[in-house]
Computed example of a mutant assay.
Amino acid sequence: MAVPDEPETDPITDYLLNTFRNIARGRRFISSMAGAFPLPLAAREISDWLEAHPPAMSRREIDEVVYTLDALCLEADEESKS
């Protein structure tokens, strides 16, 4: 199966995806005897990133996108374990 080309994006989408990727690098995990499990991103992780890298848009918009992408990623991770 051929890998499809990535869809074209605009600068705002690029900014939001890049912001999510960098915030997610600071994700916390909980460890137990069963393994390590990712925790949802918290407002603190978003704030830490945005303090170091001033946002190009409103915090409300960034939060909405980051939390939505995070939920999708955690859901996909959970499905891959099933």
Rank of each mutant, 00 (worst) to 15 (best):
M1L: 11
D5Q: 05
D5T: 10
E6H: 03
P7S: 10
E8D: 14
T9H: 04
T9R: 04
I12H: 08
D14S: 11
D14F: 03
Y15V: 06
Y15Q: 08
N18P: 02
F20E: 07
R21Y: 03
N22R: 12
N22T: 09
I23F: 02
I23V: 14
R25E: 13
R25K: 13
G26D: 11
G26H: 10
G26K: 03
R27P: 07
R27S: 09
R27C: 07
R28I: 12
S31T: 13
S32L: 04
M33A: 14
A34D: 10
A34Y: 14
A34G: 00
A36R: 09
A36V: 09
A36Y: 03
F37A: 05
F37L: 11
L39I: 03
P40A: 11
P40V: 09
P40H: 06
P40Q: 11
L41C: 04
L41N: 02
L41Q: 02
L41V: 08
A42Y: 01
R44V: 15
R44I: 15
E45R: 07
S47T: 15
S47W: 10
S47N: 15
D48P: 03
D48M: 13
E51I: 06
E51Q: 12
E51H: 13
H53K: 07
H53F: 15
P54M: 08
P54K: 06
P55A: 15
P55H: 05
A56C: 07
M57Y: 00
S58C: 02
R59W: 04
R60I: 06
I62E: 02
D63E: 15
V65G: 00
V66I: 15
V66E: 06
L69V: 01
L69N: 01
D70K: 02
D70E: 01
C73P: 00
A76P: 00
A76G: 08
D77Y: 01
E78T: 13
E78W: 04
E79R: 13
S80T: 10
K81C: 06
